[in-house]
Write a protein that binds this DNA or RNA. Structure first.
Lengths: 142, 142
DNA sequence: GTATATGCAAAACTTTTGCATCCTT
DNA sequence: AAGGATGCAAAAGTTTTGCATATAC
């Protein structure tokens, strides 16, 4: 499905800002972006777009299930395309590089624990913070 | 060790604001507090204390290892006393109640995964979000 | 007495909102 | 043409900082 149809299917008009933002997430090497990063990238490409629009669109995309919001850092949201497969994250505190992983056993135990404690889980976030062991790769992904 | 000695041992002067803040965490029923909650609680007790001081002290306590900072919500830090035993959190999205848990198997698998992916873990955060099943308790812990 | 800590006000930073204008359908 | 979307500027919420004053040792 094209980005254009993608927008229509969630009931949003296919405007230039929305198309550009969605395409950025689909084609960027960096899968995890903050509002500020989206703004800077698009502005650098010569697109005239307001930061307020970025925030509005990111929120709409999140509500439509197109994007997921993470709170890797204090006081700053990071977004990524919702992928078919849920996953958790390793975040390098040196260079900001984000790696993804999935572990079925961890998922299962989370559910068990929530059940035992009388919670109905709607969501969860598991982030491992540390340092890439490879300094070269660390730099490249900054 | 008293709060007083506790402060001295980390090289901080035992001032009234610091003593009050530390004591609050030690004696409060609510183990997880934001800067604003600390401010409001102490102000309500009649203590004249600036919000800036709260932030400075919380940061110092965190750096000294006395408190841990969590990012349960977007854009707002939550602090708790560092306890002898590391643990993770369930957060009720309805009432804000926070429950703690520890699972050795999850911990172990996290380490394994990080090793496999070439990360050296310095920290991690696992938060399960959902709803308390008991509405009564939910309200009481608000 | 000296160094450190505090309070206040102002500023920084991220995110949201009001409103006039513009664009998609 | 009509409703929704955008851009700008102002505002809101959290956290930080500069500086004069106050406090701990």
């Amino acid at each position: 499905m094209s980005s254009f149809d993608n927008l229509k299917s969630i009931g949003l008009k296919a405007t230039l800002p929305r198309l550009k933002i969605l395409t950025l997430f689909e084609e960027s090497k960096k899968r995890h972006l903050t509002a500020e990063e989206v703004y800077k990238t698009l502005t650098d490409e010569g697109l005239e777009i307001g930061l307020a629009t970025i925030y509005r669109v990111l929120t709409q995309f999140e509500q439509a299930g197109l994007l997921i919001r993470h709170n890797f850092d204090q006081g700053k949201g990071t977004f990524e395309l919702t992928s078919s497969q849920h996953h958790d994250h390793l975040v390098c505190t040196k260079c900001g590089h984000v790696e993804e992983f999935f572990d079925n056993e961890i998922e299962k135990r989370q559910t068990d624990i929530a059940n035992k404690l009388g919670f109905e889980i709607t969501d969860h976030s598991l982030n491992l913070y540390g340092e890439c062991k490879n300094p070269a790769e660390c730099k490249n992904n900054k």
